[in-house]
Amino acid sequence: MALALQQLINGLTLGAVYGLIAIGYTMVYGIIGMINFAHGDIYMVSAFIAVTVFTILATFGVSSVPLALLLVLIVAVLFTSVYGWAVERIAYRPLRGATRLAPLISAIGMSIFLQNMVQLTQGARVKPIPPVLVGGIDLLTVDGFTVRLAYTQILIVLVTVALMSGFTYLITKTSFGRQQRSCEQDRTMTALLGINVDRTISLTFMLGAALAAVAGVMVTVYYGVVDFYIGFVAGIKAFTAAVLGGIGSLPGAMLGGLLIGLIEAFWAAYLSAEYKDVATFSILILVLMFRPSGLLGRPEVEKV
């Protein structure tokens, strides 16, 4: 019981991170119909930016945790958005109008490029940061097992909830959100109404990257270590989350993220910690086989 509660907390934390990354996959899929396989690496880049900024702040003697976190978040979001923008501009936009396979291959190329770039410039070894936010609340103790809610977990969940609410508002209620959705439905018609579709696509990439950046900072604070390969695993898991929720659906990405996080946490606790990644990938295969449109997605075929 206590273990289940602990895993529920851990799973929700993990799920929040997957959800933030999954939004980037699902939004890009919605607007240009491609899977941005470099998205996981964008998230990895943001984690490295976080490590760098934390290190710089430490040398300047910034000791206030909220201030440091805020600065790291701002810098990571800014730089990572630029990465998101650049990836689209360099690797995908020139291929607009090409076959669906071309940008996909380009995306895999971008992913390899980003991994190698970070490996070369930052080294292949695991990079640690000193603990930023330590401690937590002990909720209860049963038979010597203490259920603990870490401050970082509270932070991750709160930031994610705030971001998701703001993001939902942006997409459903603002002019940019409407343009984003209209591009998803009919790009030519959107351009005919005087909207710069390329700009909307760029902003979508930047927004997805910004959310991934927040996830990257959170994970850096949570685990305290990063390496150049974290983008691959987290990326595939978030991609699975997006597919499980229904690729193209924003609420689906959030829901899928939470479910994947919970499944992974419980699988690790009760079945096998070594094989926890198997759980995620089995889900990916099962969803693709039996419900390719996901939990909240629309079926591809549409009545005209």
Partner: peptide
């Protein structure tokens, strides 16, 4: 016609009013 089917009527009109 090419209206945006998954947006409300008023949202479609807002799209027309972007300019």
């Amino acid at each position: 016609r090419r209206i945006f089917p998954r947006m409300t009527v008023i949202e479609n009109l807002q799209m027309g009013a972007v300019l």
